[in-house]
Design a protein around this nucleic acid. Structure first.
Length: 502
DNA sequence: TTAGGGTTAG
């Protein structure tokens, strides 16, 4: 076994950089205030109507929708279309109906809107719609572009069809899209991120000379091996990179550092970091965030804190992500109280927490059984103007209410999110449906049945197991007619084209 | 949407 020190020697860059540059967004710089000033003094722009529009679309049936959308006061900018599509993305059928209706009347010409619609169709595994939309893009000469292919490939992989994803990549040219090193790197990354590393590596080996693989390609593959905890393979790949004369970048080192932590090689991670320091790799905020998170996850809270304090002395300011890492590990391995102290400290220092920050705190409070306090943080998100609660926020709260046996409260949160402007996703439905079995109440099973019908209606495909559990439950509690309805629904789902099936 | 750092619990 080679030691990290030896390997580092192998990987280290030949010429140390003259200086290192730390890019920071926060604390805010004076330009932000100038920008804010300009925004407040500019003539008032009408607020985006996407929220109201999404509500309207959700409450109207397909027949009246066309009329609704013909309101002449609506300015169909691509921004409005995109925002609305995003709001409707957890209601695929409505989202696509909306897109098709607006497109029919206004002939949309933004590739971003098409990409969003294609993503929604692909998530529903409606590949016929996906390819029809891609053909329409081509006819309008607005695509399909590299981003479109990235989306489609990603969705094929997520649906368990990585071979189809590769085929799509290989056929880019035929569909009028340039196929270059960037798109090669993208398909490698899509495969790696979904842990199809072996397949990515084979593709890489087969095509690396054709596409002239660069440092990014190698970093993607190394990261892939790290994701499945195979650090020796990652190092082997990087060794080849260096031998081919490609210089490792700071990303390369940060990737390996994270890889060691992920594989539980804490000692190696530390040694590797010391080498990075010694060799003046230009350690940055990502390096430090990796250390804080890595040591924290390993239970070494004090060490994580020490590194957090040390980075400032070294001239690297923490980012929101660094705070999120520290807050998360404090929640997990220390106490939520200490995590909240850090949260308050970041506010004092002028950082703007994002939805991840809030979600981490909310989860910590839920985990500690402090549901009421968790809900006050959800309210804080609503009141503040930084970030609204998202589907993850609500799903966390619902999960913990259900786990604590407070199913009514879970359902209550579910109702509120659905009637507001945040639609539940597959996770939300799965959690709630499972919760409907714990009390062994006949009424709960009716709710489970209704949720199942609703999720199918919104373009989600329940697992076979979910269908069977609901069916058994309904039959056992004497709800024969509803069971029959569910059975018909299951048959309908099963009759969908093969690609619809899980 | 060409690469690296924050989100579950099992």
């Amino acid at each position: 076994m080679t030691s990290p020190k030896m390997l580092f020697h192998l990987l280290s860059r030949r010429t140390p950089p003259a200086f290192s540059f730390h890019y920071q967004v926060y604390p805010p710089n004076p330009h932000y205030f100038l920008q804010f000033h300009r925004l407040t003094t500019a003539p008032p722009t009408p607020p985006p109507r996407d929220a109201a529009l999404a509500k309207l679309i959700l409450s109207s049936d397909p027949q009246t929708l066309t009329q609704t959308l013909q309101d002449p006061t609506i300015q169909w900018t691509s921004d409005l279309v995109n925002r609305t599509l995003k709001r409707l993305s957890n209601h695929g059928p409505k989202a696509l109906h909306f897109f098709k209706t607006v497109d029919r009347h206004h002939s949309l010409s933004s590739s971003d809107s098409f990409d969003l619609a294609i993503d929604i169709a692909a998530r529903m595994r409606d590949y016929k719609a996906v390819w029809a939309l891609m053909a329409r893009m081509r006819a309008r000469r607005i695509g399909p572009g590299p981003k479109t292919f990235a989306i489609v490939a990603e969705r094929y992989v997520a649906a368990g069809k990585p071979d189809r994803a590769v085929k799509v990549f290989l056929s880019m040219q035929e569909h009028g899209c340039v196929q270059d090193l960037n798109s090669f790197n993208t398909i490698l990354d899509v495969l790696c991120k979904s842990k199809r590393v072996e397949m990515a590596y084979n593709l890489f080996k087969a095509l690396k000379s054709r596409f002239k693989a660069d440092c990014v390609s190698y970093n993607i593959i190394a990261n892939g091996w790290c994701l499945i905890k195979r650090t020796p393979m990652a190092l082997e790949v990087l060794k080849e990179m260096v031998e081919r004369g490609l210089e490792p970048s700071l990303t390369t080192y940060n990737t390996m550092l994270k890889g060691y932590f992920r594989a539980g090689q804490i000692k190696e991670a530390w040694e590797f970091f010391l080498q990075m320091k010694r060799r003046k790799c230009g350690i940055d905020v990502v390096t430090y965030t990796t250390l804080v998170h890595g040591f924290g996850c390993a239970g070494e809270i004090e060490r994580a804190r020490r590194i957090f304090d040390e980075m400032v002395k070294e001239g690297v300011l923490p980012s929101v992500a660094t705070y999120n890492a520290l807050i998360q590990v404090l929640c997990k391995k220390d106490s939520v109280e200490n995590a909240i102290l850090v949260f308050e400290e970041m506010l004092r220092k002028g950082y703007a927490p994002n939805s991840t920050t809030y979600n981490v705190i909310i989860r910590g409070l839920c985990h500690a059984g402090e549901m009421d306090r968790a809900l006050t943080f959800v309210e804080r998100m609503k009141d503040g103007d930084e970030c609204e609660p998202n589907v993850q926020t609500y799903t966390i709260v619902i999960r913990y209410f259900c786990d604590a046996g407070e199913i009514e409260k879970g359902l209550d949160v579910f109702e509120k999110m659905g009637s507001g402007n945040c639609l539940p996703n597959l996770d939300t439905y799965n959690i709630l449906i499972s919760a409907m079995f714990v009390r062994k109440k006949s009424d709960d099973l009716l709710v489970a049945g209704r949720l199942l019908v609703e999720m199918v209606d919104r373009g989600f495909l329940p697992r076979k197991l979910t269908f069977n559990r609901v069916l058994d439950g309904l039959l056992l509690t004497g709800n024969q007619s509803f069971a029959k309805e569910i059975l018909r629904l299951q048959t309908r789902c099963a009759r969908l084209p093969r690609q619809f099936k899980l």
